[in-house]
Simulated assay, not measured.
Amino acid sequence: MERVSTYQLAVLIVLFELGSTPLFALGSKAKQDSWIAMSLAGAAGLLLLLLFLQLQRREPELSLIGMLRKYLGSFAGTLAGWVYVFYFAYESMRNVRDFGELTQMALLGSTPLYVVSTVVMLIAFYAVASGIETFARVSEVILPIVVLSYMLLILLILGSDLIHLDQLEPVLENGWTPVLRAAFPDIVSFPFGQTVLFLMLWSLLDKKTGMRRVSFWAYGSVAVFLILMNALNLMILGPVLVENSTLPLLQSVQLIQIADILERLDVLVSLLIFFGLFVKLTLFYWGAAQAAALLSRTKRSVWVVVLGLAIFGSSFLEPSYTYHVWLGLEVSVKLFPLVQVVLPLLLWMTVKLRRMPASPPP
């Protein structure tokens, strides 16, 4: 049976939560208060994480699929399990499309989208087929590169005198309503609620004792970083430019200029996003294949091929990148709470009811 260490779990959570999140202007409808919306969503995501960890603590050796079938029954549990297969595969598809489109925009403008998508899917296919242990070891190599690169970018931004604190004012100009609308459910769904995937992974930990602590600190560190990056983009570009920019982080980094030597660092940002996107699409791909294998009681290798082809093919269904972003950030995030909040809460309540002691006879 495959196993991962608690350190590898922390690495996967950090890279997974980072993903493509710094790329987008999340909460931009709240204008200069989008960082507050991110903060509220991060706190809500932490509550969801604690819910997921509580479920896993009840059944430390069962994955999400095992818990669904045990507590919701064979039929309802299996049906809910296939909903998660579709959700994980859909999320993986979205990241494949993001990977291809970003490559065209930032690096390889004349390379066809299908070429980039084919390459990244072949690499992801190999990673998923190799197993989660192998992929976790690869992620251990990626994490230091990502952390050091983000630290370098932040230092260069600070050294370029691009930050203007007044861009964050006035605070709560239009009250709490725009902030709450930006945070719920959109930012909670993406990226914080996506940690539901780790209900497929926690059961594979070699030591369960550090699961809660490691997951909490890994999530918390990424959430704080994402809030700071959101505020940083606002202080550099201002709320109007951030709201109307397709890729605000790239636009911010393009402004870095130190002594006419260090400039045009958007390639570095692109590489960082590629790392995050690859980890995220591969983990969702693995989660979908693992869940489908458990539900159908067949070898995972079969589903790695079937779902790989489905993810690759469906990544071309959306007619444009603008439509892709609109569908993901305006429509899909409104539906994701079904699998990120509703079903886990239903499962938790069922677990609590099943474990309640029977009342004594009168």
Rank of each mutant, 00 (worst) to 15 (best):
Q251P: 00
Y114S: 12
P360V: 05
T209W: 14
F24L: 04
I123H: 12
L168Q: 07
L353W: 10
Q290K: 12
V196D: 02
M121I: 13
Y84P: 10
V333S: 10
F312I: 05
L113I: 09
G238W: 06
D266W: 08
P178Y: 05
W348V: 11
A183G: 02
P178M: 01
P22N: 04
L232S: 06
L26T: 07
V128H: 10
L15F: 02
V120G: 04
F16A: 10
F184A: 03
P112R: 07
A41D: 06
L162P: 09
L283V: 08
Y323D: 14
T111H: 01
V240W: 10
L53A: 11
G81W: 10
V224A: 13
L329H: 11
Q104R: 15
Y71S: 02
V222Y: 06
E263L: 15
P170D: 03
F135S: 08
L271Y: 07
Q54C: 14
V222A: 04
G328Q: 02
L197Q: 06
S203I: 04
V85Y: 04
Y71A: 06
H324I: 01
F16M: 14
A292S: 12
Q251A: 01
L346R: 10
L47C: 08
V120W: 10
S130W: 02
T111F: 05
L165W: 11
M1N: 03
V240P: 13
D33Q: 08
G276K: 02
P112K: 06
S39H: 02
F198E: 11
L249R: 00
W217V: 06
P60L: 00
F86A: 05
L152T: 09
S314L: 10
E17W: 00
H324K: 01
Y285I: 02
A182Q: 05
E243S: 14
I273L: 07
Y84R: 09
G19Y: 05
L180W: 07
E318I: 14
S74E: 11
A182D: 01
L309W: 13
M349A: 14
G287T: 04
A44L: 06
F216K: 10
S215Y: 05
K29Q: 15
A182M: 01
F24C: 04
I132E: 01
V179H: 06
F312T: 10
N95H: 14
T6R: 03
A218T: 12
T103I: 12
L158K: 12
I273G: 09
F99G: 13
G313L: 00
L55F: 10
T195W: 09
G238P: 08
W286R: 05
L48E: 09
R213T: 02
